[in-house]
Design a protein around this nucleic acid. Structure first.
Lengths: 216, 216
DNA sequence: CGAGGGATTGATACGTCTCAAAGCATGTGG
DNA sequence: CCACATGCTTTGAGACGTATCAATCCCTCG
């Protein structure tokens, strides 16, 4: 079950399944309900996580209540890797989900395991790439382009009809827009028959070339 | 000569001077003229850099010519660390500057050197923090807030009168704004006596509390 | 003194946000 | 099985913030 990173590109792949074995031995499985917090913003970084089932979102809320979503994580993805001692973004379950939780100490004790080291390095690098792309997107692209790129990214690894695991508000907070603007752009893209929404949570790309162009 | 990271915060410190010794032995010094390219976007990552004198900027230009500045690097800062095999941002000298250039191979051969490893890790983590902050700034803050935060960050490690090593266009491209908007915000902040510009390249903070509030 | 590049200012257009209402799903209890 | 309540999404009208285009200003340097 290989779902896509938002804004993923060709370079972006998840660590191989072999990793799961190592983590599985080290960690414990936890389940979270929809919107349940997995860790809070400003919590100490003590654990490493891997999505088993469902989707996880990271987000940061500013002192005056504005929210920025950092990213969405799908089955197989590692998350909770952060540069400092504190989580600068919190993590919440988007939908009910299952997560493998590993103590950092256990990971360190296991250091030297080539696969695991490599997987963590790869995940960190991915994280950084994503952030770089995110900066360019938020700094220099229009609402239409952001929404187009987002759909493109979600579709990247799904064939045919795509599922949208997150609601409009989450898309908006990821894209640095309001929910209304996201909605309008979706309607607009659908009006131009670039993309089609059979329901609010699923879509299909109708004009890949046009969308590609938009997302470029 | 300790200048600040834009958007830097308390956690953000440069690797200690001892590092310079290790790199100094491994690398060679290069000088670059104002606006000279140090490496290009999409170049292979083969070298590691440290600013010795002057200021360096990284930037990415999209296919249709829009530019996003990634960050500014000051003396002591390591740059050129990237998540993948290619530079996703190019690097240019902001003003004439001197840079220590080290082949990656040399760094790897030197691996195990505790100071060096630690410095590279620290620089990578810093990079990621910066990116996270940048995302929130671009996603959720107004022009006024962005400009305020920028000045705050530049001032962070300078006392009294602050120097602005970059021009308005660079500020704009870093903040995801146009040059005119940056200019207007600066005029506005100066009009409110929050900050004062004796010349276009230097300023002094007059109401730190207000600016702090704005940048929060 | 004049030329050139950056910075500022002004007028206006445009894009996105805000506020408000209506539409549409989903789930619950009668 | 329907009626309704709830939360999410869409749509609309208008306000606001930032971009655009153009002119002027200012400083530096020749």
């Amino acid at each position: 079950m290989s779902l896509a990173y938002p804004l993923s590109n060709h370079r972006r792949q998840r660590p191989a399944g072999v990793l799961t074995d190592a983590l599985e031995r080290l960690g414990t499985r936890m389940t979270y309900d929809r919107n349940e917090e997995i860790y809070a913003q400003d919590d100490e970084v003590q654990l490493l996580f891997q999505v088993v089932r469902g989707v996880v979102r990271t987000s940061r809320v500013t002192s005056d209540g504005r929210r920025q979503v950092g990213d969405f994580y799908y089955p197989g993805d590692l998350f909770g890797l952060e540069p400092g001692p504190l989580h600068r973004f919190g993590a919440e379950a988007l939908a009910d989900c299952e997560v493998l939780v590993v103590r950092r100490g256990a990971v360190r004790a296991f250091a030297g395991d080539v696969e695991l080291d490599r997987a963590i390095l790869a995940a960190t690098n991915q994280e950084m790439e994503r952030l770089q792309d995110h900066v360019v997107m938020l700094g220099r692209r229009s609402a239409r382009e952001r929404v187009g790129a987002f759909l493109m990214a979600v579709a990247q690894r799904q064939s045919g009809a795509c599922n949208l695991p997150m609601g409009r508000q989450d898309m908006a907070d990821y894209l640095g827009l309001t929910i209304e603007t996201v909605s309008r752009m979706l309607t607009q893209l659908q009006g131009e028959a670039i993309v089609e929404f059979p329901s609010t949570r699923s879509f299909q790309i109708r004009k890949p070339m046009v969308l590609e162009e938009l997302a470029a």
